[in-house]
Structures are given as structure tokens and as C-alpha cells.
Design a protein around this nucleic acid. Structure first.
Lengths: 231, 231
DNA sequence: CGGTAAATTTACAGATACTTTAAGTGATGC
DNA sequence: GCATCACTTAAAGTATCTGTAAATTTACCG
């Protein structure tokens, strides 16, 4: 993501606003806060956020009405956060265009996950699975490897080997285990394949292949992916 | 919508399946029923539904794994329906690509509302009406492709292939995935079709088909649409 | 029925990646 | 110092994958 996602919180309870603000900020979002419907609507118009968290029990206007009005023009995600737990209220909110509905008290982790889901859907962002190690980034979704901000060309086998090692970073993987996973159960004796491909990978990703920084040899046992900090 | 929305129910409890079937049918959906992960996966491949309701506690495979596997290719909505109510499980499912998560026992009206919400969102995927890449513009609404301000004549298959690649720009799409999406699940072995059509597309859109700028080959894996900047 | 455009096959040359062989390095122990 | 073992590196051989052209089949329309 180039820039942080911005979330507008419309809730009249100060404690909730504070809690949400802290939670969201520490999860790499930026926030805007509003205590009333009027205030919230205005903020959303002036600077449309990527997602709105809306409480239904606002002092100045009914939440369902606020929701309907927002949906007349706002295309981002709206998550309702409310003490009201009646089925009628939930159904109404969802049919008024809410993307999700959580009842208070809520679990923070779940709210964050539902925010990610809502953003994914409205931003049309796919599930991003990334492995990041300093200057090396492996994007499992797009199947690309970026080294020093440059895309790196890897063959199918090289890519499989790198991801297997990177997914288990820190752990020592035995020759047998790697061979079984990449080439199949019948190849556990072909340690030579492995040596050749580790060599090729090192040539591509190691700044100094003689003194590997990423793929370390555990003599007699196997290999370990363990990005060393540079000195 | 011209035709009824089709929902696949994957749940091992017969009573739940029956209940859902009756509820959904009386709300103008068509349904498909599966009692195991294997059965459900197969049905979704053969006849992809508009939405999948997935139980996590299946007898033959872990629901989270089923979910992840589905998300490798299935773009429709997936709603989890499970007895498991731990935050950990919910967060995991949402991050694995579920659109929503309901715990059993559930309220029918709420489920229906959440189904409507999920369908609204996934059908909205076509909110994107134009794909633009420098000198190449694909207009999905009018089904036209403009290259260097000149309309380009493409056959139906060429157009589908180009839009599939362009919608996933940056990502590597495997031969299998492309074949399944363009020709159908039964054609995953016909890589030859793909070569022929990629060749034809390149002849039409690439300034220099020998050194492709748009459609890049990932040998042994598939193709990737990734408009390179010119030097 | 004939004409046309598109899709499917077939065939083959060229490119790419994988396997295999072999020579070279360095550490360890006798 | 020499032998051994495990790993590294390079390069040749082999298999597989890819791109292209051209032939054949299919589908559609007048």
C-alpha cells in the first residue's frame, strides 16, 4: 500500500473513540474522530475516508438515517458498531448498505479482521501474503520476488525452494525434507539437485555468495534461511 | 438480476442443510448441497456458484484449509457458518478470505441480510469499468479495446483472455487457472490453446511481439500481465 | 448450400530449465 | 602432509516448455 488507509470513527462515547483511535493507529491506519452525526457527515464529505465505523446510537440523529444518507453518495466501506443487537436492527442496517455489523462489546482482533475484510472488498485488494526480509520481499499472491526494489527473475524450482526456506525462516530444514517438498518423495537421495539450486539462488539473491546472508549451510544436515543483519 | 442467484451449502449436518435449503429457496435463491469438503470443492469447480456457505467443522478436511484452497481461484462470496466462536478462528477465517463469519446457532433473517450484503459486494466487483495501461485502454462496459487511440478488433476468446490477465495485472496466473477461467474446468490440460491465443493477442497488442511489453511469460508456470514502462 | 470468421489441432523449431557429470575448495582427522 | 568428506561451482547434455505457422474443424449467417 502506498499510503495509510484512513478511517473515520463516528461514535458519541468518548471512551470508545479513544480506544478505537489507539487500536487503529497502532495497526497502521490513520483516523478521524466525530462525536455526532452532523460532525461525522461533514468530515466524510470534506475528506472522504477509506472506511467509516458508525455507531447507531448518536445523540442528534438516528443511525439508520445517517447510514442511508451516507450511502447516497459514499462508496467506501461502512461498519456498524452498536449496542443494539436485535435482528431487526441488524437486518435493517445491512440492507441500508452497511458492509458489516458488530455489537458492543466487541473483540478488538475481530474488529480489525473485519476492517481488513471490508477494505479488501471495497478496494478490490486481494489477500496479500508477503514474506519480508529487509531488502528481500516475496509476494506469494503475485508470485514475485523483489530484491532491493527490483523484481527478480526466478525459475519455478528456484521460487519453490526460496519460499519453502523463507516460510520456515530460522529453522534448519534437512536435505531430505527439502527434496521431498520440492521434487517429491522419490528424490530424497538426490542431494546434488539441492546443492545446484541453492547455488543458483545464492547467485541471484546474495550480495556476496561466498559469505551468504540469507541461505546458510548447516553442514551434514541441511540449510537454513536466516537473514543476518549487516554489520 | 436476470436469473436467480445460486448458493452452494457445504455443511455436514443434515438438519442445517435442509433448513438452509428451504430458507434460501423460499427467498428466491437456487441451492446446491454438499456434506463434505471434497464434494463441495468438486461442485464449486464444476458449476461455480454466486456464493458459498461453508461450515468449518467438516469431517474430511479442516475448514480453514478448504477456505484457503477455494480462494486460490474462487472469486465469489464465501460466508463461514460455524459453531466455533473463538476470536482466533474468526480472525483466521476472515484473513483467509472469507467475506463474513456467523456462529451457530444463527438467526435466519440476519443470515439472509448478510447474504444480500455479500452478494451486493461481490457483484459490485464490476464497478471497475475501465482498465487503463498507458496506450492500452479496455472498456469493460462496452467491451472495447483501444490501442494508441485506435479501436482494436478482438475475438471473444482473445477479449476474455486479455481482460482476465489485465484484471490481475502484476500477478502470475498459472496455465491451469487461465484455462479454467476461459475454457472451463475440463480444459486444464490444453495448454496449447493458451499458447495460440497468447500469440495472437501479442501480435495485436504488442509493438514488438518478440519482446513483449504487456504479456510476460513465466516459463513452467503461466503468464503475467505487467505493462513495462518503455525505456 | 457456400462463405466467412473463429476455434481447435498438428507439427516443428527454438528457447528455457532441469539433470548429470566433473573438477575444485575447504575443513577435519589421521 | 595426505586422505576423506561434504559442499560449491561450472559446464555439457537432456528433457520439457514455448512460440509460430499452417491445416483442419466448427459455428454462424445469408
Amino acid at each position: 500500500m502506498s499510503t495509510k488507509m484512513n478511517i473515520l470513527i463516528i461514535d458519541d462515547e468518548m471512551q470508545i473513540r479513544k480506544l478505537l483511535e489507539i487500536t487503529l493507529k497502532s495497526n497502521d491506519y490513520t483516523t478521524m474522530l466525530a462525536a455526532t452525526a452532523k460532525e461525522g457527515t461533514m468530515m466524510s464529505v470534506i475528506h472522504p475516508p477509506d472506511l467509516i465505523i458508525l455507531d447507531l446510537g448518536l445523540p442528534d440523529e438516528d443511525g439508520q438515517v445517517v447510514l442511508r444518507k451516507l450511502r447516497e453518495w459514499y462508496l467506501g466501506a461502512i461498519i456498524i458498531l452498536s449496542v443494539r443487537s436485535s435482528e431487526e436492527e441488524i437486518v435493517k442496517a445491512l440492507d441500508n448498505g452497511a458492509n458489516d455489523y458488530l455489537t458492543k462489546p466487541f473483540r478488538t482482533g475481530e474488529l480489525l479482521a473485519r476492517i481488513r475484510t471490508a477494505l479488501r472488498q471495497t478496494q478490490n485488494i486481494s489477500i496479500i501474503q508477503k514474506l519480508e526480509f529487509e531488502n528481500l520481499v516475496i509476494d506469494l499472491t503475485s508470485r514475485t520476488v523483489i530484491l532491493d526494489n527490483e523484481p527478480l527473475k526466478l525459475t519455478a524450482t528456484e521460487y519453490s525452494l526460496l519460499t519453502l526456506l523463507a516460510k520456515n525462516d530460522g529453522k534448519v530444514l534437512t536435505h531430505q525434507y527439502i527434496l521431498k517438498n520440492i521434487w517429491g518423495p522419490g528424490y530424497t537421495q538426490q542431494s546434488q539437485y539441492l546443492r545446484v539450486f541453492v547455488g543458483q539462488l545464492r547467485k541471484k539473491i546474495e550480495p556476496n555468495p561466498n559469505n551468504p546472508k540469507f541461505i546458510l549451510t548447516e553442514s551434514g544436515i541441511g540449510y537454513r534461511f536466516c537473514p543476518k543483519m549487516e554489520e
